[in-house]
Amino acid sequence: MRVAEDFRKLYGAEPEGVWAAPGRVNLIGEYTDVNDGFVLPLALPHTAVAAVSRRTDGLLRVHSADTGEGVVRLDIRTLEPRTGTGWAAYPAGVVWALREAGHPVTGADVHLASTVPTGAGLSSSAALEVVTALALNDLYGFGLTAPRLALLGRRAENAFVGVPCGVMDQMASACCAEGHLLHLDTRDLTTRHVPFDLDAHGLRLLVVDTRVRHALGDGAYAERRAGCEAGARALGVRTLREVDHVQLPDVLGRLGDETVRSYVRHVVTDNHRVRRTVALLDAGDVRAVGPLLTEGHASLRDDLRVSCPELDLVVAAATGAGALGARMTGGGFGGSAVVLVEAADEDTVTGAVAEAFAAAGRTAPRVFRAVPSAGARRLV
């Protein structure tokens, strides 16, 4: 295994094991996880793979095959949040979060290699966090559950790196199952694996990476989260999860700030869209999910204002070429879109998107199938 061979070259010894954690794409339910709501992601076959061994001297050595940088050396006893260490902040943040929670990590050698596209809204950072957490949990025998590892990954990203994300990304990476979507209630972390066999229905789910790179630490994500929290306070509820869809017209009438009102409208309607999507899948009416995706994109574009011209172009070109539905996925401002298509229309839709980007003078997008894959696991 290449990652184990590279570990030996870097550190002069065999790794104690090799682990993998996937990126994810979210079918529907965006910005709902930071409001205790519902999401419906699936794990991708793209993974972060880590070869890891324990140390006893308080030293954390981390290396990535993907950065072109050397080994980063950190003293785990002096790790402090938001002190910068670039990409290494993600695995370092997990070590910090484990130790903060009372789990005695004494050091580690880590070599990472990832096939999850960075900046594409596919949770490359969560994959790094979860694979690190899983490896250390196994090696040190902490006995932590997959949801607990996801929570530690979120704490690393929130408190150590400084990105105020919700828990969906880490839960998807840690808990997804092959061939299924993960219906996650982010309030209590209850999950249900929803079968998602598109081949049986003659369908495909495509991921279109616009190659417009986004960064959730730039303040826009935090501003929208703060706006949602302001809406909850104005309505006298703990989170927007508590606002029922049938109450929405009355609720919106009680909000004076137009920006806050639009954020609330998006979160409440997207929670409702997740429930409708699950009901359709349970009924076997997979094609009817398509219009909900497109409806969700309009909400993200118009109410939450987190889309961008390239994402809008994907949705317009794909649906114009016969796709059943499409929407941006992830935090927005770039990244990727998902497109639900008939298998027979895959090439036509993909070609239409490529032609639209070329006509608009945009960099050609990367398109691949979303195959529901397994969550984090030990490989060796």
Rank of each mutant, 00 (worst) to 15 (best):
residue 9 K to Y: 13
residue 12 G to I: 15
residue 15 P to K: 06
residue 20 A to C: 13
residue 20 A to Q: 13
residue 25 V to W: 08
residue 27 L to V: 13
residue 36 D to T: 08
residue 38 F to R: 11
residue 40 L to P: 03
residue 41 P to V: 03
residue 44 L to W: 10
residue 45 P to K: 00
residue 45 P to R: 02
residue 49 V to F: 11
residue 49 V to I: 15
residue 50 A to L: 06
residue 52 V to L: 05
residue 59 L to Y: 05
residue 61 R to C: 07
residue 61 R to W: 07
residue 69 E to I: 02
residue 79 L to Y: 04
residue 85 T to I: 14
residue 87 W to G: 05
residue 87 W to Q: 02
residue 91 P to Y: 01
residue 100 E to C: 03
residue 101 A to I: 13
residue 101 A to D: 15
residue 101 A to E: 15
residue 110 V to Y: 01
residue 112 L to G: 01
residue 117 P to H: 08
residue 121 G to H: 01
residue 122 L to A: 09
residue 128 L to R: 10
residue 129 E to N: 06
residue 137 N to K: 03
residue 147 P to W: 03
residue 151 L to P: 11
residue 165 C to S: 04
residue 171 M to I: 08
residue 175 C to D: 14
residue 175 C to L: 14
residue 185 D to K: 05
residue 186 T to Q: 01
residue 194 V to R: 01
residue 201 H to R: 09
residue 203 L to T: 10
residue 215 A to F: 12
residue 215 A to H: 13
residue 216 L to W: 10
residue 218 D to I: 12
residue 219 G to T: 02
residue 222 A to G: 11
residue 224 R to T: 11
residue 227 G to P: 12
residue 234 A to S: 12
residue 240 L to K: 01
residue 249 P to K: 00
residue 258 E to S: 15
residue 262 S to N: 14
residue 266 H to C: 07
residue 291 P to W: 02
residue 293 L to N: 07
residue 295 E to W: 06
residue 299 S to F: 05
residue 304 L to V: 14
residue 306 V to D: 10
residue 306 V to K: 06
residue 308 C to W: 01
residue 312 D to V: 02
residue 313 L to E: 06
residue 317 A to D: 05
residue 332 G to R: 04
residue 332 G to I: 00
residue 334 G to R: 07
residue 335 G to W: 05
residue 336 S to I: 11
residue 337 A to C: 07
residue 342 E to N: 01
residue 343 A to C: 09
residue 344 A to Y: 09
residue 345 D to T: 15
residue 346 E to W: 05
residue 348 T to F: 07
residue 348 T to E: 10
residue 348 T to S: 06
residue 352 A to M: 11
residue 356 A to E: 00
residue 357 F to Y: 14
residue 358 A to M: 07
residue 359 A to N: 05
residue 367 V to C: 13
residue 367 V to Y: 10
residue 369 R to G: 12
residue 371 V to W: 05
residue 372 P to W: 01
residue 375 G to F: 07
